[in-house]
Amino acid sequence: MDAKFSFLNKVDRDPGNLIKGLQLVQAAEGYVSDDGIRAVAEYFSIPPVEVEGVVSFYAQFKRVKPGRHKISVCDGTACHIKGAAQVLEWMRQELRIDSGETTDDGKFSLETVACLGCCSLAPVMSVDGKVYGKLDRKKMVKILKEF
């Protein structure tokens, strides 16, 4: 196995840990590369297609390289009611990308997620895992400038 993926040794080779293994790969690479799929397949002794099948099932796993900063706009029910669509529209205007895309300079990637568990602060987004609540356009632009 590619030495780059030696961190897989942290989990048992039990196929029940496949998702954990993929989570480790994604944490290391920022996404799951073709090499990552092959390494995981080899480690757990399962065919690469099956690994790919699991990867494509779960929303968490990304198959393309993301930007340096990950923006997740919450579109859970509470945030939707409180204007998540508007937040996305502002994002589109500021960054010129849609959900699922990365800016040309590779700085930001944008995605929508369902509920970050901070519904009482809706509308909410997170950048690199840090959650920002009660967004309005001004606040959002200011947060983007921090990066």
Partner: peptide
């Protein structure tokens, strides 16, 4: 066990499949 972002995995039998490392 950490989930990986699939609503259907809250359903019992899907959750079990996910625990087993499957779709």
């Amino acid at each position: 066990k950490e989930g990986a972002g699939a609503f259907v995995c809250g359903e019992e039998t899907a959750l079990i499949a996910s625990l087993e490392g499957k779709r």
